[in-house]
């Protein structure tokens, strides 16, 4: 049985519409007009137990709405969904014992109290006995490297420290599934890396499935085996992360530094010049590896002058995902026409 099964899920929100300014406000006071926003439009997907699934999309794509339906916070407008065999909006309480949730923008830790107090409260909420709670806290403190932070009031923790405590708190009752909504939002590179490492370690250690929403492709690369990309409430792409890379990461980026200044109109056949830097004689270019072999590009670059340094890399995954969004939007616009 899949851990999550979603079929043709829809969620609409009613929003009040009004014209700009005071006149618009007065008019809407007399006769309010309402519109419908389709946050989720016919979403269908499945997730296996223990799977690490990324749910990626730009702001307003419907990621958080979907995760809120799957945790029982929101009722869907139509469609079906089961999470660990429970219908979330009908069996919210039973489901909550089996899942852990982290909302990046909605901290669960009590702000004025040390994190350990929230951990203890969660122990009572999930009906663990005191000894079990203490043992679990000690285990999580080590796994997330938060032993020194637990007795500090949450308000005095950095965002990265707090998020590690948040994720640890969500695992206190040994959930079978972890639903993470933007867990790395606002974190710096180091803090992001630490939280990703801890989540990955816990997932492999306890076999917890992870559904992660993010608009950061780094989360996806570091944590997930499979990805679903959504935009405007619809799935625009779903496959393994490796397949995504294979299909879309076909171009290469090259950064070259020459011993002498190169011409401002620098061009190599079969490549696109992105930048010619005056200082340090650097050049940045891109080429399609399927059309122009790497050796050919290397040879042509050497012909121009003496190469001091060279780096060949894949374009960032963000660019790939942005390209997928654009592609989806273009085809949507074409259908609309």
């Amino acid at each position: 049985m899949p851990a999550i099964q979603v079929t043709n899920l829809h969620k609409n929100f009613q929003t009040k519409r009004k014209a700009v300014g005071l006149r618009g406000s007065l008019r809407s006071l007399v006769r309010a007009e309402y519109g419908t926003v389709e946050a989720v439009r016919g979403l269908s997907f499945a997730m296996d137990p223990g799977e690490l699934l990324g749910f990626i999309g730009p702001n307003g794509a419907g990621k958080s709405t979907t995760i809120k339906i799957l945790t029982g916070i929101l009722f869907p407008s139509s469609g079906q969904a089961t999470v660990l065999g429970f219908v979330p909006w009908k069996q919210r309480r039973q489901l909550a014992y089996q899942i852990g949730t982290v909302f990046g923008q909605r901290p669960q830790l009590w702000y004025h109290l040390p994190a350990i107090d929230t951990f203890s409260l969660f122990g009572k909420i999930f009906e663990l006995d005191d000894r079990e709670t203490s043992k679990r806290i000690a285990f999580l403190a080590e796994a997330f490297d938060i032993a020194d932070l637990l007795e500090t009031p949450v308000r005095k923790l950095s965002l990265g420290q707090r998020m590690r405590c948040e994720v640890a708190a969500s695992l206190l009752h040994k959930p079978r599934l972890l639903l993470l909504d933007e867990p790395s939002i606002g974190l710096d590179v180091v803090a992001k890396q630490r939280i990703r490492d801890a989540i990955r370690e816990m997932a492999s250690l306890e076999g917890v499935g992870v559904l992660l929403t993010s608009h950061d492709a780094g989360d996806l690369e570091a944590l997930c085996k499979r990805v679903i990309i959504i935009n405007h409430g619809q799935i625009v792409y779903q496959d393994k992360v490796s397949a995504l890379k294979r299909t879309f990461l076909t171009s290469k980026l090259v950064e070259v530094r020459y011993a002498r200044q190169v011409a401002p109109d620098f061009h190599i056949a079969g490549t696109e010049t992105l930048k010619v830097a005056k200082e340090r004689y650097g050049v940045k270019l891109r080429f399609e590896a399927r059309q122009t072999p790497v050796e050919a590009v290397m040879a042509r670059l050497s012909e121009v002058g003496s190469v001091v340094d060279i780096t060949i890399s894949d374009p960032p995954l963000e660019e790939v995902i942005a390209a997928i969004y654009e592609q989806a939007e273009r085809s949507e616009a074409a259908i609309a026409k």
Binding site: T71, I73, R92, Q94, F103, R106
Partner: peptide, 11 residues
């Protein structure tokens, strides 16, 4: 929208 916190817990 602050009911989210309470709705995600089994009480």
């Amino acid at each position: 929208g602050r009911l989210d916190y309470y709705l995600s817990l089994p009480r």
